[in-house]
Design a protein around this nucleic acid. Structure first.
Lengths: 341, 341
DNA sequence: TCGCGCTGATAATACGTATTATCAGCGATG
DNA sequence: CATCGCTGATAATACGTATTATCAGCGCGA
């Protein structure tokens, strides 16, 4: 059962293939004229046969595929890290839908020790017009190569330069984190600690920079790597800190839970602010104070930026930083007065 | 910035476009010979440029593209119905990954009153080699048209014939539902009611058929449409039913909650079995007895079946039914003896 | 010298659609 | 009659890749 083509339609209608194409595309230019009865004859045959143009051949002629690639460094539909990915993907899908684009998930990319690789033999990136990169951390060399090959892409999350500026849509962690610190300062806090890696990924760097700006460089830094939440808590209390600025949501929740378990009052004895509260289903019993990352909006705008890049390669603002929204919780309060008596 | 083509590669390597194609496809027939050094030169240029064949052009010539289409009748990444879609998608992704296929999400399909439409002008189905159809209910006419156009597809969930058998991977609701009833019967139950639509979608039909088989046609049928869970509960208790076989998980949970609220003991006064307990995050406080739908496995096998169809159009077993797994909960018990005294 | 077989490459073509250049026919005008 | 303008259609071509037919060159045997 071979596919019906314009040639078949043309034969049935007694015209040439070109006429069929012109009718299909509703061309009414002054240069291309088609007699009304001829047009009608062609339309009739098309209706009778249920013909539909082959999109592949169509994309052959026009240069764009209307396909936005989505490259995720882990599985797209995992049970773990689902909460991380889905808000981004939701925004991506919504924008693609509006742009009438299809989404191509690069599931064919080989997995090397748990992570996909963009570049491999038989790389299929070019199936898509461009690509959205999604991942907690994206290898610097892959970004550099994408830039070098002039492949249109946008990273979700701010990225440092890699052989030139990296097109990306990030969240303004620096400003949001600084704002958290300032807010605590207004309540009377003076002893701050940043809890988390604070380096490595751009997102950690940004938070740390915001923290430094807010604390005028006076804050402490408690790393969590290889430590239990309880140990971190001990360290914080031992140093007289009154506010912990926690890098990840999970770490923040763990810290608050640990405090409750051993009778440390939050925020009475220790205030905890979280730099990243999930938009959906945050733990109600925790009610952490902090800011929300506009993940869905980031996904949306990354597709929008990609579309802009595809339309005009000289787009000036390659990087967008979206504001985070303050979340009022119950884990930030005034410091105990007696500490300063 | 025009795309790199085989012609470019050919020019850089000092050969003809045909040679590039032959090298790329690793043709080693006796009829097509390429000098080792020439092959190497071409491969070098390909590697340096990061060239990848245009799948659209490739699709023009060949028949397969290593792209599996995924058509969802609602958004892929919604907040609602997320629990419904994701297990399927996870299986789909895993299988595609193994087959080295990419996934194309048809987000370009226009949305007509909340639902996507497969067939519309400028239909892009044929970009993919074939397509997985995902949706609670899929319009019969679209299935028929897919069959008529001889487009390779597989529906997730069993479907009735539509101009011929519909390739699908479903769950054996009939057998699983019947098994639930039999189990209740062994405990001494004799008065059964099916709670839910029981018709309309194939999945409801199958459950109802299994219910009828298990009850030897003696069971009642309580429809839920337009009724609150409390009203349904009243109707059940009024008719002396001892086991409610509930169609949907949400309805089952609602019924159990309603019973608890008004002091009706489950399973003491009324046993409730649910025909579809989610694999992930079922409500722990409910602990409903019933069966689990192998959603992930269904997703996996639907891709596998599609691959089989693409390889060999004459595949005999177009329809697969997977077994459901019994879930031991706390909502099915022995009927009260005094009812029969 | 001619023909033959073999190697390694190229030219040509097809896939289905969109677009451009071209062309036949015809009435009107000079 | 020659020319022009206009209408309505067609032929030709391009898009990028895969495949088939063809071809140049060469060594070798008759």
């Amino acid at each position: 059962m071979p596919r019906i083509t314009q040639r078949d339609i043309a034969r049935l209608a007694g015209v040439s293939q070109a006429v069929v194409s012109l009718v299909l595309n509703n061309r009414t230019d002054a240069t291309t004229r088609i007699a009304p009865e001829t047009r009608q004859r062609v339309l009739d045959v098309i209706r009778e046969t249920g013909y539909a143009a082959d999109p592949v051949a169509r994309r052959m002629v026009r240069q764009l595929n209307q396909i936005v690639g989505v490259f995720t460094y882990e599985s797209v539909f995992p049970s773990t890290s689902a909460d991380f990915y889905y808000p981004f993907l939701r925004g991506i899908e919504e924008c693609a839908e509006q742009l009438r684009c299809d989404l191509l998930l690069f599931t064919s990319a080989p997995v090397v020790d748990g992570r996909r690789k963009v570049f491999h033999e038989n790389n299929r990136l070019r199936i898509a017009d461009g690509c959205i990169l999604l991942g907690r951390d994206i290898p610097h060399d892959e970004l550099a190569r994408l830039n070098r090959e002039n492949y249109p892409f946008v990273a979700v999350g701010r990225r440092d330069d890699a052989g030139g500026p990296v097109p990306c849509v990030g969240a303004d962690y620096a400003a949001a984190t600084q704002q958290l610190v300032e807010r605590a300062r207004e309540l009377g806090h003076r002893e701050f600690a940043y809890v988390g890696a604070g380096e490595g990924a751009e997102s950690a760097d940004d938070r740390m920079n915001g923290f430094r700006a807010g604390t005028r460089g006076s804050g402490r830094h408690e790393r969590t790597a290889g430590r239990s939440a309880g140990e971190t808590l001990d360290a914080l209390l031992a140093t007289g800190v009154t506010v912990a600025v926690v890098e990840g949501y999970a770490d923040g929740v763990a810290l608050i839970r640990a405090a409750r378990e051993r009778g440390v009052d939050v925020p009475g004895d220790l205030s905890v602010v979280v730099t990243g509260v999930p938009a959906e289903s945050p733990d109600a019993d925790i009610a952490g104070t902090g800011f929300r990352i506009p993940r869905r909006e980031m996904g949306w705008q990354s597709v929008e930026l990609l579309a802009a890049l595809l339309e005009d390669r000289s787009t000036t603002t390659l990087q967008r930083l979206l504001p985070c929204h303050f979340v009022e919780g119950r884990t930030l309060g005034e410091p105990r007065k007696d500490r300063f008596d």
